[in-house]
Every structure is written in structure tokens, then in C-alpha cells.
């Protein structure tokens, strides 16, 4: 992966001539009068694992929403495996799995029913063997026929990962997957990310946990006020410390 530090830098083909997993060029997003993203450019190669850091309101989730084709950019270009997210979003969507802030599981349905429902949206006949295996690995096989409403936070997060991977996407996007989990739950999710990375899946995840994020990823970036602000671990650490002290200071004030 190579994150372009300069908003104006144009994307280049990588050395092997391979189409990058993600190619974002001069991306801007405006909500009303507020600029959520200001000219972000970045490239992520296939098989890379990118951690995205930044303070609250830095534009991380907006970037992920655009990459998942949930939100249209105000201007700029975003491509997933060479497919433009505005013009060819349906094709691009078949290749990506997304974990949003919320689980996106229908509370009245069981995990198995949720997976059947989402499988049908992806044109799949049913659950694959890999999905069944993942259910077992994550220890949900005994509860998979219970309504999701009865699940604990940790179980919901595990079920969410399964939902996002059921169509075997090449790109996996995760928005704060560790939020609200106990250490055991975080480690379990981290293990899934490691194993998916080993399988060659391209992963982009947002997190506030610097150490865990840097450990899991092959590269990292930090956003500040909608701009790409850092991509070296030390400068990211400094940026996050600065952001947390500012937030703490404003809270005390």
C-alpha cells in the first residue's frame, strides 16, 4: 500500500502493473457547509492491510462510507479494483465486505436467517463451507438459530464479521471493529483480521487503538480535519496524542 501524502499527488500504476485494490484521488466530501474530506488521495495494493487512525470527526468514517459506496463523494475519484465507485458501484460492491458501526443484522432473525438473507442479496444460493467454518471458529454454531436480539455485544460483533465475509469479498472494510469489546473479544476479532490478512484479503480498518492497529496492519495513515495528515507510525502516534490532549483539554474547559 502507498498512501499519497500530498492531496494533489496523482495515482500511479504500481511496479507490476497490477490494478490496485483501492485508488482514491483528490477526494472531497461536503456535508452542508462542513468539509468532511479535503482532497484525500491514497492507493492500497491487493493484499495490504491498512489501519486508519484519527480523532473523532477527522473523516475516517466518511472515507470508509465512500469506499463502501454508501456515500457519494462531492468530487474526486474513488476506485475499487479498477471499478469506479460512482459509475460501476454494483460491480465494485460484489468484491467488498463492510463492517459498519452497527451490526446491520436484523434483530428478529437468527444468525442463520440473517446469513441466508444477505446471501440472497449477493446472488448466492446459500451459505458456503467457509462461512460455516467461520461460524464454528467464532464459536457461534450453538447460537446460530437464536434471534440476534438475544446476542451479547461480543457475539453481535462476531456475527457481523461473518455477515461481511459471507460472499468471500476481496476487500474487507471495517469501521471500528473493536469498539465496546472486552480484551478477549478484541483478541478474537484481531485473530480473524490476522487470518484474513494471511489469506491475502485486502483490509482497511478504522481504529482508535494505536498499538493493536499498528500490529495488525501492514501500513497506516492518520486523518486530521479531513486531510491525510500522517502515514508513519511515530507521526501518527504524535498526532493522536495531540488530538487526545486537545479533546481532554476542551472537555476540562
Amino acid at each position: 500500500m502507498s498512501a499519497a501524502p500530498s492531496p494533489s499527488s496523482a495515482p500511479e500504476e504500481n511496479h507490476s502493473g497490477e490494478v490496485p485494490a483501492i485508488e482514491v484521488e483528490n477526494l472531497w466530501k461536503k456535508y452542508g457547509f462542513r468539509l468532511a474530506l479535503r482532497g484525500v488521495s491514497l492507493r492500497v495494493s491487493k493484499g495490504d492491510c491498512l489501519a486508519v487512525f484519527g480523532a473523532n470527526g477527522a473523516g475516517k468514517s466518511t472515507l470508509l462510507k465512500i469506499l463502501s459506496s454508501r456515500t457519494l463523494p462531492t468530487s474526486g475519484k474513488a476506485m475499487v479494483f479498477g471499478k469506479d465507485l460512482v459509475k460501476h458501484k454494483l460491480e465494485a460492491r460484489t468484491q467488498m465486505g463492510v463492517v459498519f458501526h452497527e451490526s446491520a443484522l436484523r434483530a428478529d432473525l437468527s444468525l442463520n436467517e440473517n446469513l441466508k438473507f444477505y446471501s440472497s442479496l449477493y446472488g448466492l444460493g446459500g451459505m458456503s463451507e467457509a462461512t460455516r467454518q467461520l461460524i464454528e471458529t467464532l464459536g457461534l454454531q450453538d447460537r446460530s438459530n437464536e434471534p440476534v436480539r438475544n446476542f451479547s455485544r461480543g457475539m453481535i460483533q462476531r456475527a457481523t464479521l461473518i455477515r461481511s465475509l459471507l460472499h468471500d469479498p476481496q476487500l474487507w472494510l471495517l469501521d471500528e471493529p473493536f469498539t465496546g469489546l472486552d480484551p478477549k473479544g478484541r483478541e478474537l476479532i484481531a485473530q480473524v483480521i490476522r487470518s484474513q490478512r494471511e489469506q491475502g484479503r485486502t483490509i482497511i480498518f478504522i481504529t482508535h487503538d494505536l498499538d493493536l492497529g499498528l500490529e495488525l496492519s501492514s501500513s497506516a495513515i492518520a486523518l486530521k480535519d479531513g486531510e491525510l495528515a500522517a502515514q508513519e507510525s511515530e507521526s501518527i502516534r504524535e498526532l493522536l496524542l495531540e488530538a487526545s490532549s486537545t479533546e481532554g483539554g476542551s472537555k476540562r474547559a
Binding site: S68, E102, S103, A104, L121
Partner: peptide
């Protein structure tokens, strides 16, 4: 309302369907 609960609407509209 059922889709709004747990944000299922986001997953549906980012599925590869029109």
C-alpha cells in the same frame, strides 16, 4: 423500522442490488 434497528439498511443499500 426493522432495518433501522442495528443499521441493516446500510448493509442492504451497499449490497450489489439496485
Amino acid at each position: 423500522l426493522p432495518e433501522r434497528e442495528n443499521g441493516a439498511m446500510a448493509a442492504i443499500v451497499t449490497a450489489p442490488i439496485d
